[in-house]
Amino acid sequence: MLERIARDRVATLFLVTVAVLSLVGLAAPGFLSAGTATIIWSNGLVLMLVALGIFPVILTRNIDVSGGSILGLSAVVLGLALNDGFALPLALGFALGAGIFAGVVNGLLVAGLGVPSIVATLGTLGLFRGVMLITTGGEWIEELPEALKSLGAKSFGGLSIMGIITALVIVAVWWFLRSRRGRWVMVTGDNREAARHLGLPVRRIELLAFTWAGAMYALAGITFAAQIGFVPNQAGNGIELRAIAALVLGGISLLGGVGSVGGVVIGVIFFTSIDTSLVFLKIPAYWNDLIGGAMLLGVLLIDGRLRIALEARDRAARYRRGSQAEQKSRPLEDAA
């Protein structure tokens, strides 16, 4: 049992999260409640959507650091459209379209022109943020309509509409990765040359991964605007790195080909729980980054050491088995 948990990053992280939450519960009575759970879920929505976006990109052994900028751009498109009097569904469509367009730009740069993804998305990180600032002229977009804010407000059993959509997205990604096409995404990152050799459309797969990412950043942008009711210039700034950290924590390999949706979800929830706990413990918010970073390193280090130890043991066992099988065959050999 213990061993299975040690082998499974998702399970390890789940237990660590439960342990952290219980400790906080001891220190701050009233913390452990359904209410806190919905707070953590809703606080983590934006990060969750960004992480779900980057997830397939990382599975294909690429990286996308332009998420924060695309989030900001989509939010600005949404805000401007609403303030110009467009209906909410139409404005949402524009925002989603902007995210998808930006994702396609990233995808074409990487899959079409063969620019290394870190270079391409570092470029578009600046580019999209620039487009956003020029569009707004550096102004914040305020006084967003109530209709938008209601998307982020708790309505169904403590969940907001965006919260429910996010849950559906998680199920969809889980289902997709179990499909044959989902496997294609995994193996493209595992060994791109082999995937090409076996006739998989690797470039199309990469393009689609970046496009998906763009769409998710747009959803994150919509959620962001709905939750806080205005769009500041720095909307989404730096969130891509937090999302990547959450993914790594959830066992998604930056070398591609390894990772599960469970890992994404638990990674994000872990980060958000820490932030939320600090509020309950009345620790000043500027401690968040330090504690989050230390927790990340701690979990990764312990997990890495455990894994090395287990692998060494497995290897020894394999060879021991090998020599036992050999010894069993010895008498036969003597007879022959």
């Binding site: 193996v187 595992d190 060994n191 076996l198 006739g199």
Partner: peptide, 26 residues
């Protein structure tokens, strides 16, 4: 390669192309 495969051609290369994180069957 996809077209060549569809036309019924397969090349077993000299250096094996392997997906290290997948099972042998996959």
């Amino acid at each position: 390669p996809a077209q060549a495969l569809a036309m019924g051609l397969y090349l077993v290369p000299q250096e094996a192309h392997i997906f290290p994180n997948q099972s042998v069957l996959e």
